[in-house]
């Protein structure tokens, strides 16, 4: 569902992503680990067609994001580190707006159901988003994926800055999305969350995917050691 074939992107001669090849299948949560500047966000931005690659291709459901960006965006939902919404609109209105951009109009009852499924309390749905915490905004992002029935999720440090309870709630949501058959690519620093949530993890260093592991085959400490070994070079 999410594929990269020899994806390469440079900024001023520095390779941010180098010859990245990935294949994330339905029902998989792939955690992209790495230090700041390792190329995780650049990879996600390439999948979103925010950036054009120097070479290689990124595919969503077998369609190139660079040749058919609108088509591929119909299938995915992106949740950035800080999900910004329109502060003067309520949670439902924000959800209705972004969900409707895909061309699908959902009724309010369905949207409330999506927000509840994403863990947002009913009374919060009708409040203006300016009163929302970061965790609540991230939940609107997940509700967006549910409302749009996205089978592909691209998450960029979604739990960064969340308290442990909110972070755990988010991990549970990801697990549910995985069970619904979504393919999830999540860039994160959080090794613990990657081990708990991910089915696979990839470690990036200086734009190169240096290691790929199935998370159930390693312990928390093994994953941490592996990560540190790669960071030390």
């Amino acid at each position: 569902m999410i594929e990269a074939e020899g994806l390469t992107k440079s900024f001023n001669g520095t390779k941010a992503v180098h010859n990245l090849t990935l294949n994330i299948k339905q029902g998989e949560v792939y955690c992209l680990l790495g230090a700041n500047g390792a190329g995780k966000t650049t990879t996600i931005h390439l999948f979103l067609d925010f950036l054009k690659p120097d070479s290689g291709d990124a595919l969503i459901n077998g369609i190139s994001v660079f040749s058919s960006p609108v088509e591929t965006k119909k299938a995915l939902t992106y949740i950035p580190e800080n999900l910004a919404l329109y502060p003067s609109l309520t949670g439902i209105e924000n959800l209705a707006f972004f969900a409707g951009l895909g061309g699908e109009k959902q009724d309010e009852e369905f949207l409330i159901q999506c927000l509840s499924e994403a863990g947002l309390q009913q009374e919060a749905c009708r409040k203006r988003v300016s009163r929302y915490s970061k965790g609540m905004r991230q939940k609107v992002g997940v509700a967006l994926a549910i409302a749009r029935n996205s089978k592909v999720l691209l998450l960029d440090e979604p739990t960064s800055g969340l308290d442990p309870a909110a972070s755990n709630d988010f991990a549970m949501l990801m697990h549910r999305m995985m069970e619904r058959g979504s393919a999830i690519l999540m860039a994160t620093h959080d090794l613990f969350r990657a081990k708990e949530t991910g089915t696979r993890a990839g470690i990036m260093n200086k734009g190169v995917l240096v290691e790929e592991i199935y998370t159930h085959t390693v312990s928390h400490s093994d994953l941490e050691q592996l990560y540190l070994n790669h960071m030390k070079g």
Binding site: E71, N82, A84, F98, L101, G102
Partner: peptide, 14 residues
């Protein structure tokens, strides 16, 4: 400046 442009651009609209 609000940050909503990123989410907008990730949607299937140009």
């Amino acid at each position: 400046e609000r940050g909503t442009y990123t989410l907008l651009r990730s949607m299937p609209v140009t």
